[in-house]
């Protein structure tokens, strides 16, 4: 059984990466030390009864020295409240939760769309630490426009990977979707694809990877109440019939295991 912690984490840095996107760095030693790429945390955004439930966020980066980062977009009341948390404030974090990415030795292609970029930074660092040549690794970062992509490019470049960028509006990098950028790359069939982003993008990646014979792991989302397998609220149908629970069976799955509605 994996050990989880409920920690009072102190915000030590708050970065506004774009109008809607915020990155928080927490002093959160127990969770940070136990974290694995692709896992997530449940954060209590307030202290009262409304909103009641914690909100799930991928672990953006974690350092054994005790720092943990999340990178999120303001989409509703909970994320709005979290965005208002200032440096020095204390926040309750539960984690690390779920099953993360399976790291493989073969060349890697990381594909992130929008806020799906979040879990890939931690993954990139851990891949760079394996005894393998990162020169063959590629990361494709896509977003609606420049502000969703540009602020993260340097963070990925430090691991020696080739960074390809796309924006829907062409304001930064290639114009178009990450799927198009992925199609135009010539990658070996042994290349392992790690992917996180909006559902249609992951559905598209599944099709492309199957056609090219690449393995494809995806990090998926679901509404969650507990994040730890207790409420059974986060079910998703699988191709084999029946349901999996995103919080304990995932959030990372093999893309071909899942049902994709395109």
């Amino acid at each position: 059984m994996m050990t989880q912690y409920q920690e009072k984490a102190v915000v030590i840095r708050r970065e506004q990466l774009s109008a809607d996107n915020v990155r928080l760095t927490f002093e959160c030693p127990d969770i940070a030390a136990a974290a694995y790429p692709g896992q997530f945390v449940m954060i209590r955004v307030g202290t009262g009864n409304d909103p009641l439930l914690r909100r799930p966020f991928s672990i953006h980066q974690a350092h054994k020295e005790g720092l943990l980062q999340v990178y999120f977009k303001i989409v509703g009341r909970g994320t709005e409240m979290l965005a208002e948390v200032g440096e020095g404030a204390e926040v309750s974090i539960l984690g690390p939760l779920g099953r993360g990415f399976r790291l493989v030795e073969s060349p890697a292609c990381l594909v992130g769309g929008g806020l799906g970029i979040a879990p890939l930074l931690f993954l990139a660092r851990e891949l760079s630490r394996l005894q393998r040549d990162c020169g063959l690794d590629t990361v494709i970062l896509g977003g609606r426009s420049r502000s969703e992509v540009e602020p993260l490019v340097k963070d990925f470049e430090q691991f020696g990977m080739t960074v390809v960028t796309t924006t829907d509006d062409g304001s930064y990098g290639q114009r178009g979707f990450v799927t198009a950028a992925f199609s135009s790359l010539s990658l070996p069939a042994s290349c392992a694809v790690y992917c996180c982003g909006p559902e249609p993008m992951m559905a598209g990646m599944n099709v492309l990877c199957r056609a090219r014979g690449n393995s494809c792991q995806v990090s998926v989302e679901s509404v969650m109440a507990c994040g730890m397998g207790a409420c059974l609220g986060c079910s998703k149908p699988t191709r084999g019939g029946g349901y999996v629970h995103v919080c304990v069976d995932g959030p990372v799955f093999d893309a071909e295991e899942m049902v994709w509605n395109i």
Binding site: D50, V223, A225, G233
Partner: peptide, 23 residues
């Protein structure tokens, strides 16, 4: 029992609704 199709839960004011379907 495999339970209900998703979405099974939704947060409401000071509470939540669930339709897990007794999985």
């Amino acid at each position: 029992r495999s339970g209900n199709p998703p979405p099974r839960i939704i947060e409401t004011a000071c509470g939540m609704l669930n339709a897990i379907g007794l999985q």
